[in-house]
C-alpha cells in the first residue's frame, strides 16, 4: 500500500513535469528520427529494401532513445536535489525505484508509439499487429527496469553520459536479441511459434528476474 502510494506519487510527478516541459519526449522523438535517417545513409540500401534490417534498426533506435530518456529522467532529480527529497520521504527505496521506473516506462512507451508509424513509413515495415505491441511492451519493461537502476548510479558520477550506456547495453543484450527476433517474425507475417515459445517467454523471464533484483538492491546505491 505504502509502496504503491510512493511509486504512483513519483510516477505521476514525472508525468506532470513532462507534460509541462516536454523536454524528454521532444528530444527523444527528434533523436529517434535522426537515428533512422543516419542508418538509412549508413546502410546505403536501395529505396524500399530496408525491410530485412528494419527490426534491427527499430530496436537499436529504441535502445538509444531509452538511454537518453532515462538519463534525462534522473538528471531532473539532481537539478535542485529532488533525489534527496525522495530519499527523505518515509517510503521504501523500492517505491522510489518503481516510481522512477514507471515514469520512464510511460515516457518510452509514448515515444515508441509515436515513432512506430513513422518507422513503418520510413523503413517500409509491412504490418503492425497487437503481437508487436506486446513485444514492445515487454522489451520496454526490461529496458526501463535495468535502465532506471543504472541511471540512478550513473547520474551520481562525474561521467554520467558515458557510464549509463556502458552499464546498460551489455546487460540488455538478451532483450535486444529477443525483441529483434520476435519483431522480425511478426513483421514477416509467417508462422509465429518462435515468438510464443521462445522470445516472449525469454522477455518475461528477464523482466521478472530484474523486477525482483533491482528494487531489492536499489537501496544500496544511495548510501553516499
Amino acid at each position: 500500500m505504502e509502496l504503491l502510494r510512493g511509486a504512483l506519487a513519483i510516477a505521476w510527478k514525472d508525468v506532470r513535469l513532462e507534460l509541462r516541459s516536454r523536454d524528454v519526449i521532444t528530444s527523444a522523438l527528434v533523436f529517434g528520427l535522426i537515428v533512422v535517417v543516419v542508418f538509412n545513409f549508413g546502410l546505403n540500401r536501395a529505396p524500399g529494401s530496408l525491410a530485412p534490417v528494419a527490426p534491427g534498426l527499430l530496436w537499436v533506435a529504441y535502445a538509444f532513445i531509452g538511454v537518453l530518456a532515462m538519463n534525462r529522467a534522473f538528471t531532473r532529480e539532481l537539478e535542485q536535489g529532488g533525489l534527496d527529497g525522495l530519499l527523505l520521504a518515509p517510503v521504501s527505496r523500492d517505491a522510489v525505484f518503481l516510481g522512477k521506473m514507471l515514469g520512464s516506462l510511460i515516457f518510452m512507451l509514448v515515444i515508441e508509439a509515436i515513432l512506430l508509424p513513422v518507422f513503418a513509413v520510413m523503413l517500409d515495415l509491412p504490418t503492425l499487429s497487437p503481437t508487436l505491441g506486446l513485444v514492445i511492451l515487454l522489451a520496454t519493461v526490461g529496458f526501463a527496469t535495468v535502465g532506471t537502476f543504472f541511471a540512478a548510479i550513473a547520474v551520481q558520477t562525474r561521467s554520467r553520459e558515458i557510464l549509463l550506456p556502458v552499464l546498460f547495453f551489455p546487460v540488455i543484450v538478451p532483450v535486444i536479441i529477443a525483441a529483434v527476433e520476435a519483431s522480425a517474425l511478426v513483421l514477416q507475417g509467417g508462422p509465429m511459434t518462435g515468438v510464443w515459445t521462445r522470445w516472449l517467454p525469454l522477455l518475461v523471464v528477464f523482466d521478472a528476474l530484474f523486477l525482483v533484483i533491482c528494487p531489492w538492491i536499489f537501496g544500496f546505491i544511495f548510501e553516499g
Partner: peptide, 10 residues
C-alpha cells in the same frame, strides 16, 4: 558490488 551481482544474473 551491485554491478557484479546484476552482471552475474545476466
Amino acid at each position: 558490488a551491485v554491478v557484479g551481482i546484476i552482471g552475474f544474473v545476466d
